[in-house]
Amino acid sequence: MEMEITREINNGVDVLTLSGPLDSNSAARANDEIIGKLKENGKLVLDMSGCGYVSSAGLRVILLVAKQSAVMKAKAAIAGLQSEVSDIMEMTGFASLLPKYETVEEALAALGE
């Protein structure tokens, strides 16, 4: 299954929706897309409610986004993590990289503060 990435701008914040597995097939594209938007706008929410699997390469994308946003003093957050993906992130130490919220709305509210 291919990953689909869609973009929406909500009150000046980029909301990127990742649908499908974030793995070695999609990691490079997702990375370029997310970092590109982060550079453009400086505020970004990753809606991962449609992403049921994150592989090792996928986790590294999230790590790079976290590192990049720290360097750029940008704000990024994750919304809607599925429980299995959340578990993988917890086991492998990637859970605390970016702030996580249940819904996009909550993430937007937090980023807007």
Partner: peptide
């Protein structure tokens, strides 16, 4: 590793060490 079925045992053990 809890993540062994995903092949992520390296990350999990390193996370423990850290």
């Amino acid at each position: 590793a809890a993540s062994g079925r995903y092949g992520m045992q390296m990350d999990e053990l390193k996370t423990l060490v850290r």
